[in-house]
Design a protein around this nucleic acid. Structure first.
Lengths: 193, 193
DNA sequence: CTAAAAAGTTTAATAAAAGAAAAAATGTTT
DNA sequence: AAACATTTTTTCTTTTATTAAACTTTTTAG
């Protein structure tokens, strides 16, 4: 039941922040009695009221509507200096891959570091593949060519995208750029089931 | 204003689906008069009512609270300075999460930046969950407590592991440490098939 | 262990939203 | 442009949320 969860989330966040009903009442302009009944799921507050509560708790209101997060060796460390360079099929475009995992058992996350050298002329090849991809820029500046768009990303920026659209990463600065890439392969997903 | 947006979204989605107020009324069990006033922002409906509308429109209720609709494009950029802090339920352990995605459609990769403050005494809580996890240290030094082991990791080091073993990340130095974490949730995987 | 204080819950009165149906507006056909 | 049909808005009554204050439970202090 949706509102049950909301009630619990409000209660939990309030408690985590060490607030009393009276304090939250002050912060929101709502009576503590009402807050009590909301937390106990006795009333279904209007959006306006929930919005006040979110502001009072200093959380985005969307939190209340997010789906729940579930809650031998089993691991593989890759130390910075032990990164293993990988040759991936069909990547003759100058950049370098380093795998960040050595897990042999079936897994979904495929983590890489990619280094893009400075380029003179823009390549034209684009790649597409089913699955899901995530990229975090670690160093320098780069462009993600994505379909007809070109998205400029700097160190610390991230992008999460559907790789079935033709795309390509490339350096966009005067120094080498580096990024972390996570790929999930559709086939691996299917093999799971 | 929040509710204004919600009203507009309901109207837009309903129109997009080619539904009349009466049809949506049938689908939701609400009167068309009420729906009219909700769309015209004359009332602030309780969550229960909004929930019914979401079901009637066959959309996740969270849609009404999303900031923007980046999803249509197939990608979601998170610029370094726009990282959104996330409150994950049950994390009272001091560290801070930032989500690196705003994709709303079903996805597998859940990317976070986690900041670990310097600690005095070691916490004792461990977390375990089904799925798969990957971690890359971006700054500082940290320990991954994994079952009975403690794995020391420095900037640039990575670990790929099975999160069903109880585990915890924690700072292991004199300055704040930071890491990228990728989680894949088992439930999401199952939902796929 | 008891008293006082703080936190939380319930009660009774008021304000606001929901349902049903009438009125207005919009669109279509002739 | 009139008449009809459909969609939307408004009206009136009923139901529900909200406040303020009384009440109960839990925590703190002596």
């Amino acid at each position: 039941m949706l509102e049950k969860k909301i009630a619990d989330k409000i209660h939990e966040i309030r408690k985590n922040k060490g607030l009393t009903l009276a304090q939250l009442g002050d912060a929101t302009g709502l009576s503590k009695g009402l807050l009590s009944r909301i937390e106990n799921n006795q009333v279904s507050p209007p959006i306006a009221t929930l919005s006040k509560i979110a502001r009072g708790l200093e959380v985005p209101i969307g939190i209340f509507f997010e789906e729940d997060e579930t809650d031998r060796e089993g691991y593989a460390v890759t130390y910075k200096n032990d990164r293993k360079q990988v040759i991936r099929r069909g990547t003759k475009t100058g950049f370098t891959y380093y795998s960040l995992t050595s897990l042999k058992s079936r897994h979904f996350i495929e983590p890489f570091i990619i280094r893009y050298p400075v380029i003179e002329k823009e390549p034209n090849k684009l790649f597409d593949h089913p699955g899901e991809e995530f990229l975090l820029v670690l160093k320098g500046e780069m462009d993600l060519v994505y379909g007809k768009k070109k998205i400029r990303l700097k160190a610390g920026d991230a992008i999460h995208f559907d790789p079935s659209t033709p795309h390509r990463g490339q350096n966009a600065g005067k120094e080498e750029s580096e990024c972390l890439v996570i790929v999930i392969d559709e086939d691996t997903l299917k093999a799971k089931s």
